[in-house]
Amino acid sequence: MINTLLSLMLLTAPAHADVVEKTVAIVNSELVLESDFKALEKRIDKPGMVDESLLFDKPVSSLKGNRKAQLDYLINEKLLESEVKRLNLAVTTDRVESELRDMAKRNNLSQPDLIKAIKSQGVTEEEYRAFLKEKIEKQSLMDSEIISKLRISDEDALNEYLKQNPNSRPSIDEFSVAHIFFSPKKGGAEAAVKRAELALGKLRQGESFETLAQQFSEDPNFTAGGSLGTFKSGEFLPEIEEAISNLKVGETTPIVKSRIGYHIVKVTSKKMAMDPKFEKVKDRIKAQLLEQSFKRQLKLWLQTKRDDSFVRVNE
């Protein structure tokens, strides 16, 4: 009887039992499974199938055989997937098809030839469509969360250019200034300097330049705010041109001695003549700075998301 029951059980049991896959980590509602590691190992050897922005300047090869690095990478991927869902940024198959058509057009290929080229890299069409869908979604996420908030100015690019080319300095082409003038004809040079020091102290304590110019300036041709007008480079007192050479608009000099007396000078506008070589490389430098800034902000953003998310590792 027992043998009969065992026989019936064997006959009715499934040919194979389903294996419950090990969950290595949980990221919000996303699971990192053991199979994800195997899939990632395969992706490493397939060009373009690993998101290098999540490696932060490490080579793709750094993932190979490195379970700790793979886990960190997969957790970051799951954080992105979780945010894509939260922000409802998922794309349709039609959007993926449209991107494939555009890719083929950009490369002067038919879509079947594009798929053939993808397969030649060891990637199946199904794998690539899934990868492309995730890529479009991640790009949309990065655009809204990080890239749209980055600002790289021409001044940022110029500063980077000057770091790389310290012997190249921009020259002042045109400038406008105001001054507070202290005349040595009124009690001598020493007395003029003391009056200038008194005014400079008040300026550094926060009093406005314009008010102090009204109170202290001894310029016989004084105009409102101490304005002297606009000049081309080389047209003004050389001592003052030298003193303002490194100032930004709105900044003031310490006490400057000229052949006519003592001045505290404020730059009210400044037009720089750029090195022609800088103009040629400006856009490239801005692109480099943008990429560097993106990497920094992505790293900070991911860390913030990890801190704010439910992340549990079972290993």
Rank of each mutant, 00 (worst) to 15 (best):
I26C: 02
S171L: 10
K299V: 00
K185H: 14
D154S: 08
I115A: 11
E174K: 13
E21R: 12
A69E: 13
G187C: 15
L5Y: 11
V311M: 05
E210C: 06
R101Q: 12
V91S: 07
L158R: 11
L89V: 00
N165M: 09
I147K: 03
V177R: 06
Q164R: 15
L40I: 02
S245W: 02
N107W: 10
L198T: 15
L228Q: 10
E41T: 06
E34C: 05
V27K: 08
L162Y: 07
V265I: 14
R95A: 13
D72Q: 04
I244Q: 12
T92F: 09
S110T: 15
K42V: 09
R151F: 01
I152R: 03
L87D: 15
I285T: 07
E30L: 09
K305N: 11
K202T: 03
R195P: 02
V177N: 15
E210G: 10
K248W: 04
M49P: 03
V84R: 11
K202V: 07
S293N: 14
F37D: 06
T253E: 11
K194M: 14
A104P: 01
E279H: 03
M1L: 10
E34P: 02
L63Q: 10
T230D: 03
D113Y: 07
L8N: 05
L31K: 13
K68P: 01
F56N: 08
D143T: 00
T304E: 07
S140N: 15
F222E: 03
S7T: 12
P166M: 05
L290T: 07
V60H: 15
R67W: 02
K280V: 04
E190F: 05
I44T: 01
I118K: 13
A117S: 09
N3D: 05
H179N: 12
D307G: 01
T12D: 01
A273G: 06
K85W: 08
I147Y: 00
S7W: 09
V20C: 12
L200E: 12
L132E: 11
V32G: 08
E125Y: 09
I285F: 14
K135D: 13
F222Y: 15
R284N: 11
T252A: 07
N314E: 09
N108G: 08
E83A: 04
I180Q: 06
V96S: 08
G250T: 04
E315L: 14
H179W: 14
M1N: 15
T230K: 15
V91N: 13
R204I: 04
K46E: 06
L11V: 06
S208L: 10
L198A: 13
R95V: 14
S62W: 06
G250M: 07
K85I: 04
A192D: 01
I44Q: 11
K266W: 04
A90E: 13
N165G: 07
S269T: 03
A69S: 08
F175D: 12
E174W: 00
V256G: 10
I264R: 11
I115N: 09
V91H: 12
F209C: 12
E30G: 03
D57M: 05
A224K: 14
D173W: 00
A25S: 11
G48T: 01
N314P: 01
P254G: 12
M272G: 02
